[in-house]
Amino acid sequence: MTLNICGNSHTRALRAGMQILEDSVAEEVVVFPLGTADNEAEPFSTIENGRVVLTNDRFRTKLQKNFGFSSFGPADRWGICLGTHNYRLMRSEAWLRAAPAWLGIPGMQPVPEAAFAQMVAADQRHIRAFFDQLLQTGVRPFVISAPWPVRSHPIMTETGVRPEIIKAIDVKARALFAAWLAERRIDLILPPKEAADEQGFLRPRFAKGGDDHYHGNPRYGRLMLKKVLESQRVAVAA
């Protein structure tokens, strides 16, 4: 059975990784992005006739064009890269004056853990709705994380938010999402540890670089995809 991998723009690195690994992979694996993460901020899916269809035009078009599917069905295998693009949570200059409470930074407005959890739930509500719809219709996907945050992001380098705040936001948001998925017995594949520097940011050798402060490069994609394929017991020749 074909393993289909789709998701937001972080899927592009996975596709580049697949292009590197293609000849080493024993099974058919199809990898394409559906669109950028800003599409996650609005409802993008619904159930029609017992299958999940994408109501976001861009997502729906890409699904049809690249996978040949108009909807998600239980007979297919899906890996989905959605839900850990946490820059929406980080991208506020309010973090110059506020900090996650569990960091215990004196002089900054502590954001209680429970309030943060509600904030994450609000940010992810359409993504969570999508996964609940999939489960409801008999599709059990696994979820692929976006890369670790990129240290060159302007929220740190220009706005001046402390890196430890950004990292704490990302770690907690991923953990909350992972817990939500675990309640539904959906696996979440985190990025490889070797892709992170000492502070937990994406190592520059794995970052796309230039003006791109979000994505992994093909080297990252290869490393991450290998981890994904191993988790799904898809053999990759050495």
Partner: peptide, 9 residues
């Protein structure tokens, strides 16, 4: 409230 919190939260 920090501006990134929605009104309900």
């Amino acid at each position: 409230a920090p501006p990134f919190l929605d009104a309900e939260t």
